[in-house]
Nucleic acid binder design. Sequence first.
DNA 1: GATGAATGAGGATTCATTCAT
DNA 2: TATGAATGAATCCTCATTCAT
Lengths: 213, 213, 213, 213
Amino acid sequence: MPKDTFFNLPDEKRQRIIDLALAEFSENDYDSASISRIVAQAGIAKGSFYQYFENKEDLYTYLLTLGAEAKAQFLGDNPPDPQMGTFAYIRWLSAAGIKFELARPQLSQIGYRAVRSGALPVEMQEQARVGATVFFRQLVEQGQVMGDISPEIDPDLAAFLFSAIFSELGSYLLNRLQDRGVLEDGRSLFETPEAERLFDQVLHILERGMGTA
Amino acid sequence: MPKDTFFNLPDEKRQRIIDLALAEFSENDYDSASISRIVAQAGIAKGSFYQYFENKEDLYTYLLTLGAEAKAQFLGDNPPDPQMGTFAYIRWLSAAGIKFELARPQLSQIGYRAVRSGALPVEMQEQARVGATVFFRQLVEQGQVMGDISPEIDPDLAAFLFSAIFSELGSYLLNRLQDRGVLEDGRSLFETPEAERLFDQVLHILERGMGTA
Amino acid sequence: MPKDTFFNLPDEKRQRIIDLALAEFSENDYDSASISRIVAQAGIAKGSFYQYFENKEDLYTYLLTLGAEAKAQFLGDNPPDPQMGTFAYIRWLSAAGIKFELARPQLSQIGYRAVRSGALPVEMQEQARVGATVFFRQLVEQGQVMGDISPEIDPDLAAFLFSAIFSELGSYLLNRLQDRGVLEDGRSLFETPEAERLFDQVLHILERGMGTA
Amino acid sequence: MPKDTFFNLPDEKRQRIIDLALAEFSENDYDSASISRIVAQAGIAKGSFYQYFENKEDLYTYLLTLGAEAKAQFLGDNPPDPQMGTFAYIRWLSAAGIKFELARPQLSQIGYRAVRSGALPVEMQEQARVGATVFFRQLVEQGQVMGDISPEIDPDLAAFLFSAIFSELGSYLLNRLQDRGVLEDGRSLFETPEAERLFDQVLHILERGMGTA
DNA sequence: GATGAATGAGGATTCATTCAT
DNA sequence: TATGAATGAATCCTCATTCAT
């Protein structure tokens, strides 16, 4: 964790450092990310960095926790109607995930990079993997109880499918709609009928594939 | 391309260099991968490396082509019955892809890394992205003609789903079965009934989700 | 330009680095000059060099500007009587040039090397070539107006002659007088009657050759 | 000196190596000149080079002697009328020197570079310097005996003037005439009236300046 | 608490030279 | 005699980290 000196910094300065670090680590490997570039752009002294953080890894893991917190808060800030059905809830959940990706692309990018590269500390890696899976699995099991999902479906496998699809769906939709000129940037992704249609289609496929009907 | 010098090397030595380079580039970013480490582990002089390769990028693109060739040959070596239906063919295709991933994890890893990082030459990048998408989309369109896939499905979106799922499915199955002690390594992944069952289930979900019935 | 770091250095250390760099670049081509040798002799870390300068070229162009400044200041410090005739002025000018060469041989050497090798940035190169020629040519044209130089003389050609002769004359006199034991070093070159006699002779030859009489 | 193996080479191959070496050493410092580039362009093996020459310096000094021999032969091939006066002879001599420079620019360039950089073996350096000076001085002394040159002129100094002027005059004329579009390449330098006029003017200046009249 | 100079290991690459075939 | 692979020191430059002020 960063040292107290970091948290005692004026908000504006602290945020500037965070933003630049996010940019650097979202565009580069852990090894390739450069502390020198960050401090140069932030306009702070090299030595000051080490007043704020233990070392490079300290900053990196801090950014990861920031990402986790931001996503948790993002989801918690827009809670859905608890009465809706399983697939409606999954629809809300994945839409929220994609919205988060679009709203905070750097935070998401660092997270993805961390998971893929296997570079993050073993504990966090396990935590991330298990965390996502466990959550989705509980959701699936609940859906089976409620009759929304066929009891023959392996809950863990279904959780994997949701996770795999929704982790890539955002950038797929974004690329596709931009390639065809429908969108200029991603902020308004879910405001186009085209995007809604594609998004619905994915969920219908999964619903038909896993459902009980 | 590597120089003649490299191809004139004794097989054992050439292979050792390739193996170490694969390990290095599969575990590291292009920038972070170190020629120095490779030559140190290979027990060759730093200068010798430059007798074999033009530069770092030469080695890197060589590894990428090795991967492409190996995968093409792998798929070509086990051609399926051309008469089978669309989902049977997709089943064969994804199983073959996963088998390749398990057989040559480093080659696969370098390829994934290249696609994700956007670091590879523009031509190859476009080729890879378009190649995969186009291939799957044609497959889907053909399936719609043959009545295996509902005409209401957006072919491009379906291609995305296949691609997203099967690019992650291999490592999911591997991790899952290893965690539960079913497997020691991945070589025999498809020889367990458990794996077959899970694999079938994914395809059944997709078939029901996209099918015409 | 060097970074602030360099100018904040203690005078003694900064001067030591400059002196060693002057020695290196005056004895070697740009390519052959070695940053490694400079830092080794200066007793500073390799990385420290890059705290002071952007890169090798930064140091090189800095040395060139040092030379230009030093020469400009040297000439400006000993301004001649503006009423003297053309050849008296040229005599003063070439004597001053030679004195500078003897006082700062390394600075001169780097300048000569830069002009000859065509290695310096195009702008500076053109500036140097044109600058010297233009200056001398104006001088010749003025001499023609004042009746000191025959109007039949091509001004540009005369400028070339002055430039060619005076750029080599200094080292010729130095070598000659040292070979004959008249001098030990060049500092006192113009204090010997022998040197004065030779120097006058060159100017008399040119004056008779170009004059109107 | 090169080894016998070099002189036993087929003429065509030996000449190709010489030409490429001339190009390399005329464009680069001794240090910066690259044996690797020479052998690559010559299409010979690295090892073969060391069958022909002891080392880099061996090749370099060989090129210098080639230059000296070529110039001596060039001058000897077009001997002037021995009855002409001193300045006519100097005129012939400098014209011949410039023609040689234009005919064999690389050989000349290497020679100049060697003299300027002080890089060549002490013996050759001394030999070159003394050689040129001694020759010109004898010429001047002879001119004084014949009454062409004032006896008050210091012969050594006059020799220096000739040497300094004529060593630069060729490239000055070339640049000047090319800048003004009079010439395309230097081969025909002395065939333009403009060049003849400038050349004559230099000699007239020296003749008036040093003469007895 | 802030600074920024100093450090030396490490990065990729080029070089002249040697030597076994 | 010809070859060309092997070598390791040298090149410029970047890096994360330390420490005295």
